[in-house]
Design a protein around this nucleic acid. Structure first.
Length: 535
RNA sequence: GCGCCCAUAGCUCAAUUGGAUAGAGCGUUUGGCUACGGACCAAAAGGCUGUGGGUUCGACUCCUACUGGGCGCACCA
């Protein structure tokens, strides 16, 4: 059980009245002279106990007793401050070593099945930096929630149907004709990225000009295969993983889209106007109604999207999470409304909006544009700064932050990147371990260093940090935590020598730094960073 | 115009989602390499948290009105 959870139980038992366990807020004071942990429960009980918080705190404090607690103080205006005892902290070192890679994991999620959908970039081009942020967020959230005891399915939705696919086919065919030395044109809403030219070149190299009479459909299929492959390859390189790729076309093939349309009609939520079929989404959360079937008989993207989300619910997930860019925020209300119409609980669909990444090069903004195809690809980014630094960069910012990303600056600063600081701590530990030939001990009678205790306090917090990150969907709590641990280790390293002639002294410290290393690597793994042992 | 998001040190970002004296990195300044890896450590300077009101024991955090930015407002996805 995590430290906070344990303290909640201990405090609950000390109270004169019954409270919900989660009403007891446990915090870590910024100033450690206010305790290792503190609670504000006394403030919350003022009305029920008809007394002032400090009096309540004083009455409660002596009833808070546990072998992990050294002492408890009441502090104005009513905080209860808890100090852990040192032998408890020291014992945690053995616990960490014993649990090793599973240290920090918990059953907090009670195995609830959660589906997390992220990236889902249209296969009309390769991944650029903007996709990187969503990819890192989704991947990290998945890892963190899985570690906190949720049953996570990582999913990518491939929009391989609809008219953007037709435009892809037309664009590739145009470039193919260009390869063949013929006149060509790319339509206004076609795709102009250099990868489209690459695809046409591949087709030309293979078939020469024998495919000039092929329909757009042929080029569409060829392009789709190549692009999906490229996307998967890039994600793999970026250590972003998926369990399931769901194709939009497959929803049509399985008849789910038509069935969804029928259900919506039967629910009485559709009407016809101007030759199109509308869904009355304004009945609930949406500001206006949306078209499901266009005048020309084609479906809008919304219909298969509703079918897709229904299918996810039908697959038995108790919660769905969609990771979307800020430019899609208008989408939330229409999809939620649609799902309610079909009888699903829309509150179980959690849509996480990430703010946009503004791309700069030499301080100048690069406008993403289909027309020019100008962008910075994910691959370019990785080539320049590496996977670790790129992932850390995205992971360390909260999703509400509108970030500027200047590739030139990133390359220039890559040696100052916090990830190096973390890796350096890991490399130092590895190096010390290599230099030590003796035994690793499991009692810690000689360890008595303030920084060391601060570190132990930090290490035992890990499970709570993971739970908080999972619960709130904030992977950057893990990056912050990891950075803190690395910093503490560097301080400790400077404060006392670890390898000496004294085998007891050294063997105890080796165990300690081993525990630090375990926690650092577990945290790093959750955010897709692999710590090198050598710099 | 309407809706969502944002505004914190010179710059890039945190702040345990309402807690105690708002913290890091970069940059600037000072000190430390005969300590296991100096890509490090110790320290200083830098803030009316965009502005004005409000809510309460307590506000960067919640409400409200402004100011300034990002993103939406399709029979595109």
């Amino acid at each position: 059980m995590s430290i906070k959870r344990q303290l909640q139980h201990i405090i609950k038992n000390s109270l004169p009245v019954d409270v919900e366990i989660d009403e007891i807020m446990i915090e870590i004071p910024k100033d450690r002279s206010n305790g290792d942990y503190s609670t504000n429960i006394a403030f919350l009980l003022t009305k029920r106990l008809k007394s002032n918080p400090l009096v309540i705190a004083n009455n409660i404090k002596d009833k808070i007793v546990s072998e992990m607690i050294e002492r408890v103080e009441a502090s104005a205006p009513g905080f209860i401050n808890i100090f852990l005892n040192k032998s408890f902290l020291l014992k945690s070192i053995n616990k960490i070593i014993e649990k090793n890679k599973s240290y920090g994991s918990s059953d907090y999620g009670r195995n609830r099945k959660i589906n997390i959908e992220y990236v889902s970039a249209n296969p009309t081009g390769i991944l650029h930096i903007g996709h990187g942020r969503g990819a890192v967020y989704g991947d990290n959230l998945s890892s963190i929630m899985a570690f906190a005891g949720f049953d996570i399915t990582r999913e990518y939705y491939i929009n391989d149907a609809g008219n953007q696919m037709y435009n892809l086919g037309v664009s590739i065919k145009g470039r193919y004709k260009e390869q063949c030395g013929l006149s060509y044109e790319i339509p206004e809403n076609g795709y102009h990225g250099s990868e489209i030219i690459d695809i046409a070149t591949k087709i030309y190299d293979f078939y020469k000009d024998s495919k000039l009479n092929e329909s757009v459909e042929f080029f569409k299929k060829e392009g789709l295969d190549i692009l999906i492959n490229e996307i998967k390859k890039d994600l793999d390189r970026f250590r972003v993983n998926f369990d399931v790729f769901t194709s939009e076309q497959s929803l049509y093939d399985r008849g789910l889209v038509d069935r969804t349309l029928d259900k919506l009609k039967n629910a009485g939520k559709c009407y016809i106007e101007d030759g199109a079929l509308w869904l009355k989404t304004s009945d609930l959360y949406d500001e206006k109604d949306r078209v499901l079937v266009k005048k020309d008989g084609n479906y809008t993207y919304l219909l298969p999207d509703i079918a897709y989300h229904s299918d996810k619910f039908d697959r038995g997930f108790s919660g769905l999470i969609d990771v979307l860019g800020a430019d899609h925020h208008g989408y939330i209300n229409r999809i939620k409304t649609s799902l309610e119409f079909l009888g699903y609980d829309a509150s179980k669909l959690d849509i996480r909006i990430l703010q946009m990444v503004r791309l700069l090069r030499n301080g100048e903004e690069i406008k993403l544009s289909k027309r020019t195809g100008k962008t910075i690809t994910l691959n370019e980014l990785i080539d320049e700064v590496g996977v670790n630094a790129a992932r850390y960069f995205f992971a360390s910012k909260s999703l509400d932050t509108q970030m500027d990303f200047d590739l030139d600056l990133a390359v220039k600063n890559s040696n100052d990147n916090p990830v190096y600081y973390i890796e350096y701590a890991n490399a130092r530990i590895t190096s010390i371990m290599r230099n030590y030939q003796g035994k690793i001990l499991s009692d810690f009678s000689t360890i008595d260093n303030e920084i060391a205790y601060t570190i132990m306090n930090k290490l035992i917090e890990f499970e709570d940090v993971v739970i908080a990150a999972a619960q709130k969907g904030l992977p950057h709590l893990i990056t912050n935590y990891l950075y803190d641990v690395a910093g503490l280790f560097h301080s400790y390293y400077a404060s006392e020598k670890i390898i000496t002639d004294d085998n007891v002294y050294t063997g105890q410290r080796i165990a300690f730094i081993k525990a630090i290393q375990i926690v650092m690597n577990n945290a790093a793994r959750l955010i897709g960073i692999i710590l090198r042992d050598e710099m």
